[in-house]
Design a binder for these strands. Structure first.
Lengths: 106, 106
DNA sequence: TTGTCATTTGGCAATATAACCAATAATAAA
DNA sequence: TTTATTATTGGTTATATTGCCAAATGACAA
């Protein structure tokens, strides 16, 4: 594998790693609706401010979201548009699996 | 969040977790080409048989691949067709980012 | 049956991740 | 300026993940 491909591979692993936590996946889904500030995530999740901030910064490092400070607040929004189709794709896949399991039981 | 949504969320996290390791991502890419038996992965990766087997079983648990034993060998193949578009999508996204960085440097 | 090959499973040590608290930074309001 | 608010960073502990080795399984061959 060429170094370029290797890097691409590692970058993509980082993307999946970023999405591999229920909290971060929930955050991405929220951002698919509209931008949110850190405090909104804190309020809705009942997690510590520091925990939320670290989750967001991980998503940012993976180039999936971006932030911008306005007034006292930091607002995050989706950067990788392809997330919408990826999550949609997997929702369908999981629904199909569930239907198959229901089928097997009947 | 309803219990059903919660489960869907956790299932999807499991999918991303399964994809979040360079070795497993490589395996998925290989399986996008054609089915492979465990020993082919072992040979190509220089990892221990047990390590390879565990990676594959993790992908299987996430319902992304399926296996079938023929003779002495166990063959794995892609189960989640949507992986092709997901990986393609992210390849494009990462290429775009790289192009942007090249742009910034010039 | 006995042996051999391909794979899986259990166990262990090294490393990575997640959550909290405390401390710090940056901005806005008083 | 001082204080309050919002967010990030550093540190610690608990938990999860990864990779290897050794042992167990399962199917075919002799």
């Amino acid at each position: 594998m060429k170094p370029f491909e290797k890097k691409q591979q590692d970058d993509m692993s980082a993307v999946f790693k970023a999405l591999a936590h229920p909290t971060r996946l929930w955050m991405v889904r929220e951002l698919m609706q509209s931008e949110r500030c850190v405090c909104e995530f804190v309020e809705a999740s009942h997690l510590d401010f520091s925990t939320v901030s670290k989750h967001l910064s991980l998503l940012k490092q993976a180039h999936l979201i971006e932030d911008d400070k306005r007034g006292k607040n930091v607002y995050y929004r989706l950067r990788a548009v392809c997330l919408v189709s990826i999550v949609g794709c997997l929702d369908d896949h999981l629904k199909t699996l569930q239907a198959e399991r229901a089928e097997d039981r009947s």
